[in-house]
Design a protein around this nucleic acid. Structure first.
Length: 422
RNA sequence: GUGGGUGUAGCUCAGCUGGCAGAGCGCUGGAUUGUGGCUCCAGGUGUCGAGGGUUCGAUCCCCUUCACUCACCCCA
């Protein structure tokens, strides 16, 4: 048996309704905010991700699906969406068309990691970016849209956490203060944290080991080191979130994984999602576009993990699509006549199904019951001879004979929405 | 890359440190010549994840390997 690739899952028909629902909510919620969808390729030149995400992040160091194509170019399956969107925005000079551009995307991302609950090698993200707007109102608008999206999906037990990482002007001072603080306590930290101290000292702050948490409990807060501009920016974000009645927590220990973040960062944290509890995350990336060779434009965005979203959702509430009609036919002639009727319904966009293989009426009704079809049209030799059809209401278990010519009128009186007057 | 758990029917899982491979659900047919759900009856499917070892005999014990899964690292 040829199986799928580890960590890359099939989304089967039984699950697809939830995905369709999510995608419909994305469009419904994002469009009023002025966001336009953008579709970019799933592969890019490897260099794009190295330069945007950061050479010494885990994603670039060990998690990318990188390969050489037939002409020897190094290509990579995208591990995230922002880099590609920025590349496209720069390449097509979209800032000339829209000085402030609001873009969103939905699609698969790829990271070579060990799969676990809520983490897969191919996973799907919904992302949104506001490009060209430095105002903290952009931050708040984006967070508001994210919040509205979760409300629309029906998730109300996720917590919004925000933080500010400062800017290239003030972050180095904080980093130094933190390094100095940790250096004095290095002997009390776990092995992982000693490595983090060298590599990314901010990460020591969110270590899960109790001993480490105790050791850094009194660590300096990034918020105390913000420069006046960054401080004002963050205060405005907090004030406007409150004015919009969006609940949030300030988490001054929140660390983001990608190098390009500055100022506002945020996460939506889910309970009961297992260890991978960030269902959405993002932040501001004011220097990114310029560093990729584009114009000097600020940006801010988020990404939502769709698999994590489905794990949190009560998917049983999403109604399954079902055919409106089932045609049950008995006898060869009736089957062929029913088949023509079936084709006619389908041509009109009416969901209709039937059995082709001459099964018993009992079996056909069982099938219709399984499909939860509200009406079954029964066509046997008798009905055919009388030019009639039995219309069976599956809920009330009642049925009546209807002339074939008046069938459409009969159905239209029951479902005017599906059978508009011709 | 590291650690734990689990691999038995399409699905969910029983199987007493060793003796013919099991149940429920689902599927198909019947009880009702052409009438669903509830009930009853009948039916089928397994390299017991794979390979090796111990044994008269292994789903069970041992070794190896693979897969899945959860967790670490990291992240959506």
């Amino acid at each position: 048996m040829i199986t799928g690739i580890k960590g890359m899952n099939d989304i089967l028909p039984a699950e697809i309704e939830a995905w369709h629902f999510i995608e419909a909510c994305v469009r419904e919620v994002f469009h009023p905010f002025g966001f336009k969808e953008i579709r970019v390729p799933v592969v890019e030149k490897t260099e794009l991700f190295c330069r945007s995400i950061g050479e010494d992040t885990d994603i670039v160091e060990k998690e990318m699906y990188t390969f050489a194509d037939k002409s020897g170019n190094s290509l990579t399956l995208r591990p995230e969406g922002t880099a590609s969107v920025m590349r496209s925005h720069i390449e097509h000079k979209l800032h000339i068309l829209n000085p402030v551009d609001r873009l969103y995307y939905v699609g698969p991302m790829f990271r070579y990691e060990r799969p676990q609950k809520g983490r897969y090698r191919q996973f799907h993200q919904i992302g949104a970016e506001i490009i060209g707007e430095p105002s903290p109102l952009a931050d708040v608008q984006l967070l508001n849209m994210l919040w509205r999206f979760f409300a629309r999906i029906g998730i109300n037990d996720a917590v919004l956490q925000i933080n500010s990482l400062g800017c290239p002007g003030c972050r180095p001072r904080y980093r130094q203060a933190l390094v100095d603080f940790i250096a004095e306590r290095l002997d009390r930290l776990c092995g992982d944290c000693r490595r983090r101290y060298q590599h990314n000292p901010l990460r020591v702050l969110d270590c899960k080991v109790e001993q480490c948490r105790d050791a850094v409990q009194a660590a300096p807060s990034v918020l105390d080191f913000l420069c006046p501009d960054c401080g004002t920016h963050f205060n405005t974000v907090r004030r406007l979130l409150s004015n919009l009645a969006i609940p949030f927590e300030v988490n001054n220990r929140m660390v983001r994984g990608l190098d390009y973040y500055c100022r506002t960062t945020f996460e939506m944290i889910a309970s009961r999602l297992g260890a991978q509890n960030a269902v959405a995350a993002g932040g501001r990336y004011d220097g990114l576009i310029e560093s990729l060779g584009g114009p000097t434009l600020p940006g801010i965005g988020f990404a939502i993990g769709m698999e994590r979203l489905t794990l949190m959702m009560d998917t049983t509430r999403i109604p399954a699509s079902r055919p409106l009609l089932f045609l049950a036919a008995l006898g060869e002639k009736a089957v062929e006549k029913a088949f023509l009727l079936l084709a006619d319904f389908q041509k009109q966009g009416i969901g209709a199904e039937m059995d082709f293989s001459g099964k018993s009426l009992k079996s056909q009704l069982r099938r219709a019951d399984k499909l939860q079809t509200p009406l079954v049209l029964i066509l046997g030799e008798d009905e055919l001879a009388a030019n009639q059809i039995q219309v069976r209401d599956m809920e009330t278990a009642t049925q009546e004979k209807v002339g074939l010519e008046s069938l459409r009128t009969f159905l239209a009186s029951r479902w005017p929405h599906h059978f508009p007057q011709a």
